[in-house]
Amino acid sequence: MDTATHQSDEDILIHGLKSGNQSAFHKAVRLYTPGMLAVARFYLDHSAAEETVQDCWVTVIDAIQKFEGRSGLKTWLHRIVANRAKNHLRKAKREVSADFSETLDPELADRFAPNGRWATPPSLKTNESAQALLENGALSDCLDKHLASLPETQRSALLLYEAHQHKSDDVCNILDVSASNLRVLVHRARQKIFLMVETFQETGEC
């Protein structure tokens, strides 16, 4: 008796989680932990963020029974992490600080003449695909280094928006920022990576 003609991978995973299936948890932990960590790092330092994500997963064992699928599993998990991280922040009487005032990265801003035209224009055109570029291990390492050195707020916004493919509205909710401030964070982070790739392509150095 096959009533369900199509069950998505996510539905199957949710069913496994609700049944307390260990391999479903293992799969979900691998799939969703990087994004959950990106959320937690927006609010907390490295060790507090890791602790928060670990605690969340233990909470999820029971909380998943109440998951009704009104949002996707990823968004639901990210909201749980954000709430816990915000509570943590509140208890520590701290606030997230980020600069939303300037859209241009200072290093890029310096490359324009007073009349608003390029004084130092981008020199090389990137023609290779992302996959081809990443086959260069040194560039991949350099990217790691630069992503790690971004301000936490920029990195979290960038990762949630790009790598974890959230919609803007979801990222704004999870990170408690306005749509325009999210745009600033994402754009600032992208410029840093743009500058890094440019330097790497010109000099071969990170």
Binding site: Q54, L133, S140, A163, R190
Partner: peptide, 27 residues
Amino acid sequence: GNLRASVDLINAHSSQQLDEELVRRID
């Protein structure tokens, strides 16, 4: 064009990232 290439690079790269040690502890 280069900014767009950087965005593609971030997407392709970040989706490969996983802290195995953290995953083990959570498991």
